[in-house]
Design a protein around this nucleic acid. Structure first.
Lengths: 325, 325
DNA sequence: GTGAAAGCGCTAACAT
DNA sequence: ATGTTAGCGCTTTCAC
């Protein structure tokens, strides 16, 4: 029963059971044309020998098994697990396997991508498009970018915040907000610039508060502290995302401000986290299931040739009003 | 340039570049013995033909690439992403790839495990050991169980809560707690029974409150409500885990109780979530990094033959006192 | 129902 | 520096 060479192969099982390799293959794969007694005998021998079919041999010879690479920036940031859960679900429904690549796990820049390139048929998720080291590492691996910026060289899923922002501005106005602030690492660009623009257009002058680039919670706490010292009269804070919004709420609690009476707080993403904190967070939520479905379907479509490699989909955010406003 | 067959192989590139397969292989794998000009030419052709080496061919012929399966109960539960992040990190350091298997993604019971069995060399994580469907599905895939119960047929990482519990009991006593309660789906078994025993031994009579089996947050909220109506005088709640503890805190807030003045709350796990909520949660924390390191090292050791298949390691919890007590 | 032959795509080892 | 040979372990024909 002991093996000479490193691996137990189908040949070993065949020899030990006194049958051909094909018969072992039939037994292992539950195929029809095999005697029930033979199958049991072969399976018993296989178990005894600790035989496990090589996924490489199987993949080469048989029907391709497809693998989706999921690239995330940081699993410790609760946004990404929610996305990962949705992607895993969709991939499982489609019969695809998911290999995980967490940028924070990389021992050197983009090192995590090398594994994806070797293991996945197509990848989905987050990627720093500006960094040529990153895109070079892909070596032609098709990539479906989530939260795709307009300038991206890849296709993917774009996020549309416009409608939800309009709703949020109207909502805050109706709540009597007069002095809103936006808090982000770079409050003058991207979605926060849009936000500020809309608030201004609605007659609400906006304070922009920059936050440090790091742990979003800590950044949110620090940012409100600074904000409150320079503008003690703010009555609403729009944070870049839910995580930073939670930091903002922590900072407001610490400063003795009542939410939502003194200050109203709005986040972006729609994380479950927002329902756990007190008060529950009003947010511009995105439907992760829809994002995952679109991304995975694009990815599979690219592999199957039914989608253009750079196809784009769009998912809308939606205002979810909870207790923080 | 157009291809007749489905896949572009190394042979196609070799033919198009006018070299042998081996030279293409040398170019693709950055090997030494190749003319720089030749390499560039070959790579250009490969790019033009959209050639991507087959991972199966490569795996069969070359050095084995190792893959770790990570089995989780539910990615939406923040405990699991924190574990996943730690496992991903350790695996990356060891040069292993991680394939993800989320039980919640399974379209039918244990279906998610089938993918693991086909794709991973060894698996790590959570598994319902009681269910024979589950263990049968493994088909001999070595499994390293995390939070391994003493009765498990697998090896893995055991959690040791004893010391942290003693610390927690002493801590609550010193805070003047007189009427503690334990809240869990089954407060009469496992770690909560231990907890109750220790509290009783310390002269603190314990109320046991069962929670429904479902979303831990909602369960926590519902459980405290019931608890407060039957025992309005409780002055401490020990929850089964941090998530349920957050639900308990929500419920206490809603009931107008002040934490920690009226009621003190303790969770188990040490999730980051506990630092986000207000007040920050006191908890029996486990070092996820240590858990992940032990689990991954056991898994790799089993594959490399340096560890027994059923080897066991132990990781201690530690009391982390924050604002909720 | 079972076995023999062929080949999946690639790289290691050995040629040249 | 490049080409040739020989497999890796498995499933698919196709025979019987």
């Amino acid at each position: 029963v002991a093996r000479a060479r490193g691996r137990v192969t189908i040949e070993d099982v065949a020899a030990a059971a006194g049958v051909s390799r094909q018969t072992v293959s039939r037994a292992m794969n539950d195929m029809a044309e095999i005697n029930a007694a033979t199958r049991e005998r072969v399976l018993a021998v296989a178990r005894e020998l600790h035989y496990r079919p090589s996924r490489f041999g199987r993949g080469l010879a048989g029907a391709r098994q497809h693998t989706l690479g999921l690239r995330l920036h940081d699993l410790m940031n609760p946004y990404f697990p929610e996305l990962a859960a949705a992607v895993a679900r969709t991939a499982a429904e489609r019969g695809w396997t998911v290999v995980l690549s967490d940028e924070q796990s990389a021992t050197e820049p983009a090192a995590d991508l090398r594994a994806l390139v070797r293991q996945a048929d197509v990848a989905v998720g987050y990627l720093d498009v500006g960094d040529p080291r990153v895109t070079d590492t892909l070596h032609g691996l098709p990539f479906v970018q989530i939260d795709r910026p307009p300038s991206s060289p890849f296709g993917g899923v774009e996020f549309a915040l416009d409608g939800a922002m309009d709703d949020a501005v109207a909502h805050l106005g109706s709540r009597g907000v007069r002095r809103p602030a936006v808090v982000a690492v770079d409050p003058a660009s991207g979605r926060m610039a849009q936000f500020a623009e809309r608030l201004t257009a609605a007659g609400l002058p906006v304070v922009a508060q920059a936050a440090i680039d790091g742990d979003p919670i800590a950044a949110g706490v620090a940012a409100v502290q600074e904000l409150l010292s320079s503008h003690p009269d703010v009555d609403a804070v729009l944070a870049f995302n839910d995580l930073m919004a939670c930091g903002v709420m922590k900072g407001l609690h610490a400063a003795g401000r009542d939410i939502p009476v003194d200050v109203r707080v709005v986040g972006v993403d729609g994380l479950t986290l927002g329902t756990v904190v007190t008060p529950a967070l009003t947010t511009l939520a995105i439907d992760m299931r829809a994002v995952a479905r679109d991304a995975v379907d694009l990815a599979i479509g690219i592999i199957e040739g039914t989608e253009e490699p750079r196809a784009v989909r769009r998912v809308e955010h939606e205002l979810v009003v909870r207790d923080s406003t």
